[in-house]
Design a protein around this nucleic acid. Sequence first.
DNA 1: CGTGGTAACTTAATCGATTTCGAAAATTAC
DNA 2: GTAATTTTCGAAATCGATTAAGTTACCACG
Lengths: 336, 336
Amino acid sequence: MVTITDIAVRCNVSRATVSKALNGHSDISAETAANIRQAAREMGYLPNATARTLKLGRSHNIGVLFVDKTSSGLGHEYFSQILESVKQEAEKSGYDITFISRDIGGLSMDYYEHAKYRNCDGVIVASVDFTDPAVIKLVNSDIPTVTLDYVFDSHSAVLSDNVGGMAELVRYVYGKGHRRIAFIHGEFTSVTQKRLGSFHRTCSELGLTIPDEYIQPATFHDPKSSGLATRRLLELKERPTCILYPDDFSFIGGMNELEKQGVSIPEDISVAGYDGILLSQVLRPRLTTYRQDAEAMGREAARALVEIIERPKEWIPRQTMIPGRLLEGDTVRTIE
Amino acid sequence: MVTITDIAVRCNVSRATVSKALNGHSDISAETAANIRQAAREMGYLPNATARTLKLGRSHNIGVLFVDKTSSGLGHEYFSQILESVKQEAEKSGYDITFISRDIGGLSMDYYEHAKYRNCDGVIVASVDFTDPAVIKLVNSDIPTVTLDYVFDSHSAVLSDNVGGMAELVRYVYGKGHRRIAFIHGEFTSVTQKRLGSFHRTCSELGLTIPDEYIQPATFHDPKSSGLATRRLLELKERPTCILYPDDFSFIGGMNELEKQGVSIPEDISVAGYDGILLSQVLRPRLTTYRQDAEAMGREAARALVEIIERPKEWIPRQTMIPGRLLEGDTVRTIE
DNA sequence: CGTGGTAACTTAATCGATTTCGAAAATTAC
DNA sequence: GTAATTTTCGAAATCGATTAAGTTACCACG
């Protein structure tokens, strides 16, 4: 490997001079600097990120905390899109991405220790159990963090507009003439709480009274539980005219159940999903859903984190709300 | 941060002694070593991976090269599962995962340079254009690499058994009585070539003559193109009785097209997918497909790479074939 | 008692890059 | 022509950990 020393030898200058020239310091003559840069190019010099990190205490490396418990981690398109987007944005600012986990090779460390061990300049936290003490320790540590879809006091977060999204969805459905709207929700996370709250508030704003049985619990990303919830709804004396699912993928379970019972979409019942993943747009009829802008979420999270890292003085905790967009499909029919 | 020096001061020994004690060298008395370890624990000492990397020339960091060109990267469940699995296995051996890309923050580097810059001990290459000169440069460099679903001469690779998988699928369908089997294949990659070759060979072994029109080109992970291919098949004078799709997700396009034309699965036509992603198992009727063992692929790739890294002498290039498994769903009906 | 051996540490160099401080050389000022 | 600046560069310390080589001190053996 070509090092700064090799260049110094060839150019007959000191290592200090090479370093300065390569970093554009002003106390190196233009001529010398040009020489050195030329030599560096010719010799195929690459800075050694490790040495730089050690000396400067900055790794230009961002940790990401994505936990894949079968369903909600990378397996979920929403999160894999966020990850991809975080990566792309981070790269623009010269940062690489490393996964943070516990128990790296025998040494059992918690998230914070792992991030420290790797000298991460910051960590993006998503798709985890935010009540996990290890996560809380990390977030409250000296390492800058940005959380996704969850807010810790006095910390930066990027949030999908679950409240606005759900409101828009309900209003859209209402506008189509639906009055008996059911909502199958995911497990009790802050996301679910927001959507559920928004659902209730919007309904009441619209003057709708939603019977308790129209609110059915299920699990995110789990068609089976959504299928069961769907069945419970179909068994009601007064069936809803529209069902909102926890997410697009879960809707598959509802779709199956409806098919099985001979209830067709949207003639007999209307449905809507949430997320706007690719699948929702290739199904026929196309699923009406609320698209979460995963690309923007990842981008903004990366930007926010880089800002904390690079301008820690000016920084103040900030929550960035990312709006989504209603994707009108063909699964909500108009009722006169 | 607690460093080795802090411990040395507190224990009244030299830094060398601390280092040796912590690494279990034999020339430190049991008593001293115990003292030092105790102090390290109490002080919350964490080794600094960066310093270690710089000194030892080993980063315990593995690069992964996954390119997400809209469809085939992380967006594909197959690859995100592989990634997750690589990560888990690598962690067991004490390695972290970093994404490798080009153009990291202004500096434009190719994959090799990036991996060098970050001192990656090795790189896992998947889901890329294997004819890309930058990829070839990386693979032929001094950095150990393991490729997935592609073989470079004298290099280690982990392969999904596309030949065996396709053969099994065809034989299964044949066993169900089908003689007019169509195959919609993905774009021309080595994977497609293998599947296509295996399809032809197996058919001929079974004494089947497949008309050219039964082989239809499409694109992986693209329901639209598969939908069009499906339509072309349906327009044939003599329709196939069974259609094999390039992958499960693409099948959605076929499903839509069949639905539209009033052709029902599996009564009027049989279908099968490939991959065995979650989606295939939640659709109703459940999709008959060939499950690629992504978890094993990732695991074996990580193992192979770690072996090259840690035992470079004993290592010889090796191709590991990962068998899959037929998932019998309800989309292939029996024909008498 | 002297020599050799060993256990237990320490010293100091090293990995590659950055940066402070100082020094020499060149330029300007008077 | 001398003093004061400025320009340009180098020496050396530093980041945290590892390790080869050297140094004690102690013990054993002939």
